[in-house]
Design a protein around this nucleic acid. Sequence first.
DNA 1: ATATTTTGTTAGATTATTCTAACAAATTTG
DNA 2: CAAATTTGTTAGAATAATCTAACAAAATAT
Lengths: 219, 219
Amino acid sequence: MASITEENYLKALFNLSNNQGEASISDLANQLGVSMPTANSMVKTLQKQGLCKYEKYKPVVLTEQGKKAAALIIRKHRLTEMFLVNKMGFGWEEVHEIAEQVEHIHAPKFFERMDEMMGFPTVDPHGSPIPDKQGRIQELHLKSLSEAAPGQEAVIAALSDSSAEFLAYLNSRQLSLGTELKILSKESFDQSMTVAYGEKERESLSQKVCEKLLIRIFD
Amino acid sequence: MASITEENYLKALFNLSNNQGEASISDLANQLGVSMPTANSMVKTLQKQGLCKYEKYKPVVLTEQGKKAAALIIRKHRLTEMFLVNKMGFGWEEVHEIAEQVEHIHAPKFFERMDEMMGFPTVDPHGSPIPDKQGRIQELHLKSLSEAAPGQEAVIAALSDSSAEFLAYLNSRQLSLGTELKILSKESFDQSMTVAYGEKERESLSQKVCEKLLIRIFD
DNA sequence: ATATTTTGTTAGATTATTCTAACAAATTTG
DNA sequence: CAAATTTGTTAGAATAATCTAACAAAATAT
Ligand SMILES: [Mn+2]
Ligand SMILES: [Mn+2]
Ligand SMILES: [Mn+2]
Ligand SMILES: [Mn+2]
């Protein structure tokens, strides 16, 4: 069974591969806050266990086994986040740190019971999909708000950044998953967008923010 | 901050001291399933941190700091067990192993929220007291059933053994916390007792069982 | 009061996870 | 392309947690 340390490496490799297409040793080291030699040596350890493939100076690639293991940890993480928000009353900005620890608990029944109590949710509080028990992840082909055009209406479905800082920003603007946006205009100078939602008639969102809001456009 | 390993040693020392009055190296090693040299060296490590006092060939004694640290871990353990039973529908025989892992999570809000949701319980699902936030434990001066006399009536308030095996035995006899017992007779030959409770008119309980049932006698 | 058994200690080794320093390969820049 | 920079590797060491083997002290039983 993988140690907590190994589990965190697997998750980091999985996320890096998904977000950047590949995982370099330096990215991995950065992500985990360890030195490159440390990451290098752990990658060799994971390879010996058949969890990743690795050749000197090449990017690290998870095996199918490694991907599944990572997805199952992410499943526990996201179920936990959803449980904390839906059943325990936490805010979406408070749950990541707790889930980062709870995801390492070995107790299938614990997570199955959470899943059941919530009616088998498919996404976490930040809109990210929850892998199923086989480690399969459903693709949510969402666009970012910056790809939408003035005149369109859309609903916020997920975030590409779930940092506490970004979540705090969204909270301060009453933006949350499910918020319906009308796109009024887009400034070609800085790509910022003016939108209406809820009580707000005109709110300006910077390009940075627009890129991080993942939306479903109304037909 | 104490590691998971250190936390488990603190808990073991605390429990041994409470149950046997003192904690020897061999008891500690046994309790944790490690060799004596391992226990010996960890005790030295804990002493360096001011968590216990230790002199060669003498029993290990927790300091006030060590006692408090242990009690706070036990608090998390027992709150978790209660949460699993009361809020997640687990049986009292299923929760110890899960709590053994959850007790090491560092997230005060998580446990405070559990506590709140349950209305600040004072005992766990096996009747053991939950230490308060300062690490103080309320003494429940309970007698065991074997100390009671025929003719008396009593209610099961706690257990001095919460092993899965004993809990399974109690489940099979419909015995649980809160069960009211009428003591019909006591066999002087083997100290077994005949009792009535619920639908049962006459059930015989061995001395072993009677000793493990902690009761409050009706006045 | 010896002898035996149990308990505890020391020494030395192992595995996991991490680091820094030094060097080497790959990539980017001018 | 050559120089500079970034990225990756190796070597060597440190700390935490564990073990076994050997020995020593304490407790128990003749
Ligand atoms: Mn998260
Ligand atoms: Mn984690
Ligand atoms: Mn327990
Ligand atoms: Mn534990």
